[in-house]
């Protein structure tokens, strides 16, 4: 079995920032555009995220994710632009197709929302080891069992992929065709699901025993292999982010 994580190991100040601050940043990037519904604000949020991703030297890694998101969003734009019930103002016509302003604006809002969220999350996911994130939450008082569960969730997809490749090896080793045309591979894929799920369940049980004897449930005060990350300016950043959220709220209430 192997494990793959989206985390990219680079040297950058973004990597140095502690996970909690990144979580607060996500809250900021989600909340502010909702509280202040203006295109400019949304653009600024996406912009900040992209700049940070670039500083973290992981911009290239975001391409597959963004491409997928765009694919979905383009369909949203088309459907909303063409068919939203409130559509009135014609924007332009292409043969029989009419694009309306209301739908397009609405779709654009959704698109920006999604982009702000995705890009903010990407900062966390690409520049933070899952274990590091969980560890800092556990240090803040979260129960280690829940922490372990979260790490496991991070690992589910890689583990499933590993299990699929293990079972595929077992199957082709004994004569089942799994290579070649799309059809062959598709046919081989279906019978995999049962064993993958069963295997995962059995693993869970054996793993639970391994955890037990390694003192996982012991009441002793835990220690940590890695020192807690303390980024020099994290307090300042956190304060600024929280201030921005509060500011947005105040603006909203006053106006």
């Amino acid at each position: 079995m192997k494990s793959i994580s989206l985390y990219v190991n680079r040297n950058s100040f973004v990597h140095d920032v502690d996970p909690i601050t990144k979580l607060i940043y996500i809250a900021f990037a989600i909340l502010v555009p909702i509280i202040v519904p203006s295109f400019t604000i949304s653009f600024i949020c996406v912009g900040i995220s992209l700049v940070l991703l670039a500083f973290a030297k992981v911009l290239r890694k975001t391409v597959p994710v963004f491409s997928f998101v765009f694919l979905v969003l383009i369909t949203v734009v088309i459907i909303q632009g063409l068919f939203k019930p409130e559509n009135e103002t014609v924007l332009f016509q292409l043969g029989p197709i009419t694009m309306y302003q209301e739908g397009l604006l609405f779709a654009l809002t959704i698109t920006l929302r999604v982009l702000t969220i995705v890009s903010a999350f990407m900062i966390l996911v690409l520049t933070t080891k899952p274990s590091e994130l969980v560890e800092s939450l556990v240090r803040k008082g979260m129960s280690p069992s829940i922490g372990y569960m979260i790490v496991s969730v991070f690992q589910i997809i890689p583990e499933m992929m590993a299990a699929v490749s293990t079972i595929t090896d077992a199957q082709r080793a004994r004569g089942m065709e799994t290579e070649g045309s799309f059809f062959v591979r598709f046919k081989a894929f279906l019978p995999l699901m049962g064993p993958v799920v069963l295997g995962a369940l059995i693993n869970t049980k054996e793993r639970a025993m391994a955890l037990e004897v390694r003192g996982f449930n012991s009441q002793v005060q835990k220690t940590y292999l890695y020192e807690e990350k303390t980024y020099a300016y994290s307090r300042l950043i956190r304060a600024l982010l929280l201030l921005a959220i509060a500011g947005a709220l105040v603006w909203r209430i006053l106006s």
Partner: peptide
């Protein structure tokens, strides 16, 4: 079947019990 599954390296895996 006795790998914890929550650590990324052999080094961290050995640390698991010690942390606990």
């Amino acid at each position: 079947t006795q790998v914890t599954g929550s650590k990324m390296t052999v080094y961290e895996e050995i640390a698991f019990g010690l942390e606990n």
